[in-house]
Design a protein around this nucleic acid. Structure first.
Lengths: 329, 329
DNA sequence: TTGAAAGCGCTACCAA
DNA sequence: TTGGTAGCGCTTTCAA
């Protein structure tokens, strides 16, 4: 494995000179012939600098760490994520995703801290604790930013309050004259951080209405599970259902139709996330659209936080939500 | 930022002792009181070891690097990926995803090489070149494994030949007596690596049939684009269409039905990926199911390659495919 | 314009 | 059982 010393030897110069040349050091002027000899030597050896050694020496890195999401990213989130990566790269950061599957919050924070990232962009879903934030900061992280429903002491927060989604759905259904509302809660593990606040939001929306009733409904993401739920549908006495998201809504919609339940006549069905696929159904699915922040904006927040580590944690409520009425409600 | 020297000072021992205690060194026996003093000092200071320093000293790391996928991962791939991460962690590797958005193949390989990963698991879609593999190996990567349609000189390969998907679809449609076959090619950038081989595979399946005709059809992932395509549907004179995947198939199916084209009577529609959502349509969507390798198996290949870096590159053809006939063909 | 050398944080060898 | 210390690859200050 070639090191800068090897390059120096081959070029007949010192390691210092190699470093100057390869980093385009402006403070030092290196003669053109020397510069070329070094470049050629580096190319010939296939020299690649050692990031760990470099950041060890420098005392800091430009690494922005994000935990790998456990759930499959939707197209929307995936888009924002790509934007974010672009924007951070333009600001000369390196984005690294770190798989923390099956670690507790504090374990994960420690594992991240070992990498000495300059910034951490973590989910704001309760896995990261104030202790975790403290560990990260002590280890040199200039900025810790959470992105999700909850904020964490000491960290900047981009609040995406999923309750707003539920509230929005609830308001729309009440608006349509529906009062006996089922709320689908996915049975699959890992969805609680989204489904619980969505349910809570819907509850909040119906709170002022004495005649309203909210019934949580467990549903697994498969047809037998939907059939089972629908088999006891009429006993439930619901006139509408908020199905967690468009995918569960589509699953439920088909099952309801197969059971002869008229949608929206007998039961209104509402999804969330505004997937294209939901628009393709008959009836077209009503949904809640969320507006995610632009990747550019996230990147700017991260950069600002890195440049001013002492600044007070910023808390940005994001996630504009909007009901999109279509044919299913 | 506390270092092991700080811990040593606080505990009143040497840095060596700190290292022994915190790494549970078996070759050395440390007395229980000392051990405790060190632990307490480390806890009190919130000491977290410095991964870069450690791997610099050790001369190697246990990092497995994967480029962050640009496209949103489907639920299937996402599942395999989670499995893989679990399995690698059990084997004591650290999985890190690195965003290489907007870098050329060789730039990306260099950027990866700077991190000195012990293994790289890259997409086998042509971005990684033999030069790239060489750079990675020179920089100490014990294993380079590609996962995708193409293999690369010098790297292990898990071949997922997307042509098999097209072949499978073609065979099924011919079987159903269809001979004038449209093939949807997504207009969105980034899909070529999948769509091109799927188209090629379908062409291959029809090659022996003189009466068969294959017509590529560009389609954007939105309703206007689908409407536009369908407006000239009858001029195209097709009796079937392989729609790239289930999502595009769903889009097209709705547009065809809106235009009064009977499916499957007038035109058979076939998707791929076997999404649950495709099963929910009327008619239920016929599709091609792919069998992905288990994450466990991928992890084992990586581990084997790391342990025997000199071994000849293994090439595993994966991706069993199977037509799933439902109502749309 | 170039070179010598210190030192980032850590571990492992050798000595006490 | 513990401590001293060299050295991983790199950058940067100081000297030549």
């Amino acid at each position: 494995m070639p090191t800068s010393a090897d390059v120096a030897r081959l070029a007949g110069v010192s390691r210092a000179t190699v470093s100057y040349v390869l980093n385009n050091a402006t403070a030092v002027r290196i003669s053109e012939p020397t510069r070329q000899r070094v470049q050629e030597a580096a190319d010939e050896l296939g020299y690649v600098p050692h990031a760990a050694a470099r950041s060890l020496r420098a005392g800091h890195s430009r690494m922005v760490l994000m935990p790998t999401p456990t759930m499959p990213m939707g197209a929307l989130y995936s888009h924002v994520f790509n934007e974010l990566q672009w924007a951070l790269r333009r600001l000369d950061y390196t984005v690294v995703q770190f798989g923390s599957l099956g670690m507790s919050g504090d374990e994960a924070a420690r594992a991240w801290a070992e990498l000495r990232p300059v910034a951490v962009l973590a989910p704001g879903d309760g896995t990261l604790t104030p202790r975790g934030v403290h560990v990260l900061k002590r280890s040199g992280a200039k900025a810790v930013v959470t992105l999700g429903p909850q904020r964490v002491e000491g960290a900047h927060a981009l609040l995406m309050d999923q309750r707003a989604v539920g509230r929005c759905a609830g308001a729309h259904l009440l608006d349509r004259g529906r009062t006996r509302i089922g709320v689908v809660v996915p049975r699959e593990p890992g969805y609680e951080t989204f489904s619980a606040p969505r349910l809570a939001g819907l509850r909040a929306a119906t709170e002022t209405r004495a005649d309203a009733r909210v019934v949580p409904l467990e549903l697994g993401y498969d047809e037998p599970s939907a059939a089972e739920l629908v088999a006891r549908w009429r006993q439930l006495g619901l006139d509408s259902v908020f199905a967690y998201n468009d995918e569960y809504a589509m699953l439920l919609l088909r099952a309801l139709q197969d059971a002869g339940v008229d949608v929206p006549g007998e039961t209104a069905v509402m999804g969330a996330d505004d997937l294209l696929l939901g628009r393709l159904l008959r009836p077209r699915l009503s949904t809640v659209r969320m507006e995610l922040p632009s990747g550019q904006r996230l990147a700017e927040l991260v950069d600002r936080a890195v440049r001013d580590p002492a600044g007070a944690p910023e808390v940005h409520p994001l996630l504009g939500t909007e009901a999109v009425p279509r044919e299913s409600t």
